[in-house]
């Protein structure tokens, strides 16, 4: 009985901590929204973050996008060949990339690259009192540090998704047409037949939501770091894990609403 109530106690505490955490992230979001539209706008900071989140992530996104498209073509080909529908490979690759894999894989890569860096950088600023120094100089830390990162996350993740969609389809085309010998005209025709512009738009909308999630979580974890170098490490890990889980879970619900 005692052991049972102990387990229940722990479960309850975990749920409470989780709910509290979500509440705090939403409060941070509200604070970001209020500071975002209050001049002066720190354009230089925003562009710097956009470069970091966007431009510097292009390489990994191209790499993951290409190989995902390639492997999808390979797997799809073996499946479709069983009922002689190899021509559908192009359409499925394109649908899968634009609706699902483009946004999700891009966001996960950006989480690993930029979300973790946001948590580590803000975490270090917290433990070395740089965030306190901002407050002391009457400069709002949310405006200075978090608003530019969230803007960069929301704007750049969809743009990177475009790159990922495109290189994924290109990778699929290369494997399908040049390695597996599907007719290139049929391959492309099936893409335009199966993929609607709305598939692409909805995928990009999802990517913007994921960009918001990963930047907010990264900033939240970094901003609330405590406990020196160990704390920075913990904040970084938690940011990546929490953001990745949140992206995958919210992906289901966004998809259920959109498609």
């Amino acid at each position: 009985m005692n052991r049972f109530s102990g387990a229940l106690d722990r479960l309850g505490r975990t749920v409470l901590v989780g709910v509290e955490e979500i509440g705090k992230i939403i409060l941070l979001f509200v604070s970001v929204l209020t500071w975002m539209f209050r001049p002066p706008f720190k354009l230089r900071n925003i562009f710097k973050q956009m470069e970091f989140v966007g431009v510097k992530s292009i390489f990994v996104v191209v790499l993951t996008g290409t190989f995902t498209g390639m492997v999808m073509a390979l797997q799809g080909y073996h499946g479709f060949r069983m009922f002689s529908a190899e021509s559908l490979v192009g359409g499925t690759v394109a649908l899968g990339m634009t609706r699902e894999l483009g946004p999700v894989l891009t966001s996960l890569m950006v989480t690993a690259r930029a979300g973790s860096a946001m948590a580590a950088e803000l975490g270090t600023m917290r433990v070395t009192e740089q965030i306190d120094a901002l407050s002391v100089m009457a400069a709002n830390p949310v405006k200075h540090l978090i608003v530019p990162r969230v803007i960069a996350g929301v704007l750049m993740t969809p743009l990177l998704t475009v790159v990922s969609d495109f290189t994924g389809i290109l990778g699929g085309y290369f494997v399908g047409v040049h390695i597996l010998g599907i007719n290139s005209g049929i391959f492309i025709k099936n893409i335009t037949r199966l993929v609607d512009l709305n598939d692409i738009y909805n995928g990009l909308a999802k990517a913007a939501c994921f960009g918001l999630i990963l930047s907010l979580v990264g900033c939240y974890k970094g901003f609330n770091t405590y406990g020196g170098a160990e704390g920075v490490g913990r904040a970084t890990t938690e940011a990546v894990v929490l953001a990745s889980i949140a992206i995958l879970i919210s992906d289901y619900f966004l998809t259920a609403i959109m498609f």
């Binding site: 600023m125 070395t128 009192e129 740089q130 306190d132 120094a133 407050s135 002391v136 100089m137 009457a138 709002n140």
Partner: peptide
Amino acid sequence: NEIRKKFGMLFQEAALF
């Protein structure tokens, strides 16, 4: 923040950005 403009503070490790 208005009050804080009367203040300057030197942090323990200087807290330079």
